[in-house]
């Protein structure tokens, strides 16, 4: 596997929601620059919670968590937006903003980063074209199908060319052909240097790409080598 700078590093990290028992316990793992991991495990095992910690939606309740070399668990609030801008997230439930068009949703990371529209218009259009939604740029999420929303969410995650891509069940709402295209895109982006973590239930997909797998069970993370051919 590629060796490079550490993108994510967990050291004995625990995560608990309020006073409940820990959802994740003693998580210790690293993800280097240009590495690809699948994240698997049964429903409710903590896959989404782990991703939420990485994309800085939840703060670990204990342990050390480094993101892009910075101690994210201790980082001041003002430092978080810059870290988040280096991450592209495909949320399981898409989390598109209903009052914005597909174009505006995809452009959101660029807009909040203060990029001039003239600079990102072409990128956004190209991405939407690539995911087959060039003709739906002006459509609001309410008028899009589940698969179309998924593709808009994917385009939004990738538009800012992130160093780390996190995808939570990215193929759950698309047909097999589109699912395969999406996974190939992740692999391509990974080859270009982005670190990728894909949480999925689709073991066939995991096996077909032959990438390393992180398995979560009972709040614990373990690593196993991927099966199948390389991508």
């Amino acid at each position: 596997m590629d060796a490079g700078k550490e993108i994510v590093r967990f050291e004995e990290v625990g995560l608990a929601y309020e006073d409940a028992p820990e959802t994740l316990s003693n998580v210790t793992m690293t993800l280097g620059e240009g590495e690809f991991r699948f994240l698997t495990g049964p429903s409710g095992a903590g896959k989404t919670s782990l991703l939420k910690m990485i994309y800085l939606a939840h703060k670990p309740t204990r342990g050390n968590f480094f993101l892009f070399g910075e101690n994210a668990a201790e980082a001041p609030r003002e430092a978080l937006p810059a870290l988040r801008r280096r991450i592209g997230v495909v949320f399981q439930e898409f989390r598109l903003l209903d009052h914005l068009t597909a174009f505006e949703n995809v452009a959101l990371p660029m807009k909040v980063a203060g990029v001039n529209q003239n600079q990102y218009r072409e990128d956004v259009s190209e991405l939407l074209n690539w995911v087959g939604l060039g003709h739906r740029m002006g459509a609001k999420p309410a008028t899009l199908s589940g698969g179309e929303k998924q593709r808009v969410a994917l385009a939004r995650a990738l538009v800012s060319k992130p160093d780390l891509i996190l995808a939570d069940e990215p193929t759950g709402n698309v047909d097999p052909a589109m699912g395969e295209r999406i996974m190939k895109l992740f692999v391509e982006l990974n080859k270009l240097g982005a670190a990728v973590i894909v949480a999925t239930h689709d073991l066939h997909l995991v096996q077909s790409l032959g990438k390393p797998v992180l398995r979560i069970a009972d709040g614990k993370v373990s690593r196993s080598a991927g099966a199948g051919g390389a991508a």
Partner: peptide
């Protein structure tokens, strides 16, 4: 709340 949360997650600052 949901919109604010998404804005934060895509890198928006509080000031924004």
């Amino acid at each position: 709340h949901e919109i604010v949360s998404v804005l934060h997650l895509v890198g928006a600052t509080d000031d924004f």
